[in-house]
Amino acid sequence: MLSIVENEVQIVALTLFALLYALKLRWLLSRPTVRDFAHARGNELAGVTAAFSIMFRPWAMLSTRQHWPRWLEFGLMHVGIGTAITYSFLIPYVDGILKWPGTRLAVVAVALGFGAGVVRLARRVSRADVRAISSPDDYFSLAVVDLFLLLGIFALLDLYWGRLLFFSLTALLLVYVPTSKISHYLYWPFARVFYGAYFGRRAVVQ
């Protein structure tokens, strides 16, 4: 059972995931883009570079400078997610990965990510300004990712039921993610390029 969930089910889900993303990209790339004819004042490439690196430089943006705990939550949660996703590939294909000492560190990363995710969910529920911009998808996406991280901890601790539930949820998430707000990360590189090129050219972001 576990073997099927960790292998065949994941492959089917991943294929669907890739197909859905391909369709999303096709739609995005089918739309006309805006060309900038104005003579540059700054440097587009410098703007794009700055735009991509800004997530690693919380001091570079006033909002993250003022709300640095939020940036920390963001960082912890995304590192946790990245770690859990990486292990969803490693566990089925790398024998003994869960016995490797480095996995203990991974458990901590996923646990911290889970904690950050819970804080974020609590904020979304408790604050009127954040509730105002939240749809059911926003709540559900955050809750399901928190659950994914929680189950990730159990999977990394090599608990049988933990692995079974973690990989079952992973398969479901692979199909849900491209249709939900979680897919925002697919657009992140595009957003960064557009933002960086636009404001870099104007010497606003350098």
Binding site: V130, S135, K181, H184
Partner: peptide, 8 residues
Amino acid sequence: HACAHCGL
């Protein structure tokens, strides 16, 4: 699509 409704 990119807005994650983070509230920042």
